[in-house]
Amino acid sequence: MNFGGDAKKAWKDIWGCGQGIGPITRVQKTAEYIARLKREYAQAEARLAEL
């Protein structure tokens, strides 16, 4: 990649993945991921209700 030249266009061809790419260990169906998020949210909510 050529990073020189017009600074306004230097990043137009670079796709960042952010800092959260490291924990990804497998590809899964969206429905499975959403179900996990719902389950974890409910567990966290229950723990907070106990406080």
Rank of each mutant, 00 (worst) to 15 (best):
N2Y: 09
N2R: 10
N2I: 05
N2D: 15
F3Q: 13
G5T: 09
G5Q: 08
D6R: 05
D6S: 03
A7G: 11
A7Q: 12
K8R: 15
K8P: 03
K9I: 07
K9V: 12
A10T: 14
A10L: 08
A10W: 04
A10M: 14
A10H: 06
W11L: 15
W11S: 12
W11V: 13
K12G: 01
K12P: 01
D13Q: 08
I14T: 04
I14Y: 01
W15F: 13
W15K: 07
G16Y: 01
C17M: 13
C17Y: 05
G18I: 00
G18N: 00
Q19T: 11
Q19I: 12
G20F: 02
G22K: 05
G22D: 09
P23I: 00
T25W: 07
R26G: 07
R26Y: 12
V27G: 07
Q28G: 15
Q28K: 14
K29P: 03
K29C: 03
K29M: 10
T30P: 00
T30D: 06
T30F: 08
A31F: 05
E32F: 01
E32I: 04
E32A: 10
Y33G: 11
Y33R: 12
I34E: 12
I34Y: 09
A35R: 08
A35D: 15
A35M: 04
A35N: 08
A35F: 04
R36N: 10
R36A: 11
L37N: 06
K38Y: 07
R39T: 04
R39E: 03
E40Y: 05
Y41L: 04
Y41G: 00
A42Y: 02
A42N: 09
Q43P: 00
Q43M: 13
Q43G: 06
Q43T: 10
A44G: 11
A44P: 01
E45Q: 11
A46W: 00
A46Q: 03
A46M: 02
R47M: 06
R47K: 13
R47E: 09
R47Q: 10
R47A: 10
R47G: 01
L48W: 06
L48E: 09
L48R: 07
L48C: 07
A49Y: 03
A49W: 02
A49N: 08
A49P: 02
A49R: 12
E50T: 11
L51N: 12
